[in-house]
Amino acid sequence: MGTLTAQMASDGGPWRLYIVLYGESEWPTVRWASGPVPTGAQRREALASLGYEVAPRAEWSWVEDSQKRDDDSTPVVLIAAVDVREQEGASA
């Protein structure tokens, strides 16, 4: 299998990290209680718990969006993304 995308998002509440699996109704997900942005180490651990790892040379990228599309007066949603691959010997 090639690379997939992992995303992490929060609208000020709990952080969610999930693996984007197109065509699937449920995506592997890890949640953190609300608080600061999960550290790089916490994200690696979460990915590993799902059977994935950051792909070689991949880096997290960040964007912001509005809770309501095209309405910048609503709270900001932060979204991060990174390319991932299945861990060696893992079956996700």
Rank of each mutant, 00 (worst) to 15 (best):
E59D: 05
E59M: 08
G13E: 04
A81L: 09
G12K: 15
Y22S: 02
A55G: 09
A55M: 05
I79T: 15
R44M: 14
E53C: 04
T39E: 08
E26W: 10
T74K: 11
E88G: 07
T39F: 03
D65P: 11
D65Y: 13
A81M: 08
V76H: 01
W62F: 12
Q7L: 03
D72N: 13
A6I: 08
R69A: 13
V77G: 13
R43I: 05
S10R: 06
Q67F: 05
D72R: 11
E24W: 10
D11R: 13
V77W: 14
A41E: 12
E53P: 06
P14Q: 09
V63M: 14
P14E: 12
D70L: 05
T29M: 11
T3I: 09
S73V: 05
A55C: 13
W32R: 03
R85K: 07
L50E: 01
E86N: 11
V76Y: 01
A6Q: 10
V20C: 01
S49E: 04
I19H: 02
G13A: 08
D83F: 09
V20I: 02
A46S: 07
V63N: 15
E88P: 03
G23W: 06
L17R: 01
G51D: 00
R57T: 14
T3V: 10
A58M: 11
V77N: 14
E26H: 13
I19Y: 02
Y18G: 09
R69K: 13
D71V: 04
A90N: 06
A55V: 08
G40F: 12
L78H: 15
A6F: 08
Q7G: 05
V82L: 00
I79S: 13
T74P: 12
E86A: 12
V84S: 02
W62N: 15
E59T: 01
L17V: 09
G23V: 01
L50R: 01
A55I: 07
S73P: 11
S34F: 06
M8D: 03
G12F: 14
A92Y: 06
T74Q: 11
L4V: 00
G51I: 03
A41S: 04
A92S: 09
I19L: 02
I79H: 14
L17Q: 11
V63C: 15
S34M: 11
V84L: 08
E45C: 05
S49F: 04
A58C: 12
E59P: 03
S25G: 06
P56M: 12
A41Q: 08
G89D: 13
A9G: 12
P28Q: 01
V37Q: 02
L4C: 00
P36R: 00
Q87H: 11
W60A: 06
Y52E: 03
A33T: 04
P14Y: 07
G40K: 15
T5K: 06
Q67A: 13
R85G: 03
Y22I: 01
Q7P: 01
W62Y: 15
T29V: 15
G89Y: 11
T3P: 03
I79L: 15
P36S: 02
A9H: 14
A41M: 04
V30A: 03
L21E: 00
M1R: 02
G35N: 01
V82I: 00
S61P: 07
E64R: 15
A46E: 11
E88A: 12
W27N: 12
V30S: 00
